[in-house]
């Protein structure tokens, strides 16, 4: 099993619904977020192009945050999901520094927090909150080892890319272009 997510940049309108749904679902304190929206604009008026992406932890296969964690709080869970055990986290911040995607933040309660792909939901057969709420249905989630999962299907059909592949982290957050 290999969980992955694909975000369709052609459909994403950057509304930030994924952000607020994640915040309420996971009780992320106001002022912090586990996912966020990036807009990249290119060109000169009126020859313009824009790419909008909903970003979050890339749940890398070769995750530097897991490697550098001194206590083992950062770990791989089922399906390659990268999680943090709050009780084992000493809040040292090494993982924050090591992440090329800036996907982690220091929770005010003293541990490091990040996207879990809504582990508590997917265990029960639900989609992550961001994918479930997105009004444009631009977030696809599922098991890459299952050729029939929606994420496998869409990645087969469409061109995609990952962010900062040169970091060698083997990210599992794909962007359909």
């Amino acid at each position: 099993m290999r969980y992955a997510m694909a975000v369709d940049t052609r459909k994403c309108v950057g509304c930030s619904d994924c952000v607020v749904a994640c915040q309420t679902e996971n009780n992320v304190p106001i002022g912090y977020c586990r996912d966020w929206v990036v807009e990249v604009m290119d060109g000169t008026y009126p020859q313009l192009e824009i790419e909008i992406r909903s970003e979050r932890c890339n749940h890398c296969e070769n995750a530097p945050c897991v490697r550098c964690c001194p206590t083992g709080a950062s770990h791989f869970a089922a399906g390659g999901i990268v999680l943090v055990k709050p009780v084992e986290c000493i809040g040292c911040g090494a993982c924050i520094a090591s992440c090329p995607y800036d996907a982690r933040y220091p929770h005010p309660k003293g541990y490091v927090d990040k996207c879990t792909f809504c582990f508590h939901r997917i265990k029960n057969g639900l989609k992550p909150a961001c994918a479930a709420v997105c009004p444009t249905k631009c977030i696809y989630f599922g098991d890459l080892d299952d050729p029939n999962s929606e994420v496998s299907a869409v990645l087969k059909m469409r061109k995609s890319k990952t962010l900062i592949p040169e970091a060698g982290t083997m990210p599992q957050l794909y962007f359909l272009i």
Partner: peptide, 9 residues
């Protein structure tokens, strides 16, 4: 089944 950011918030 999908609220917008304002509805969610």
């Amino acid at each position: 089944g999908r609220f917008c950011p304002r509805g969610t918030g």
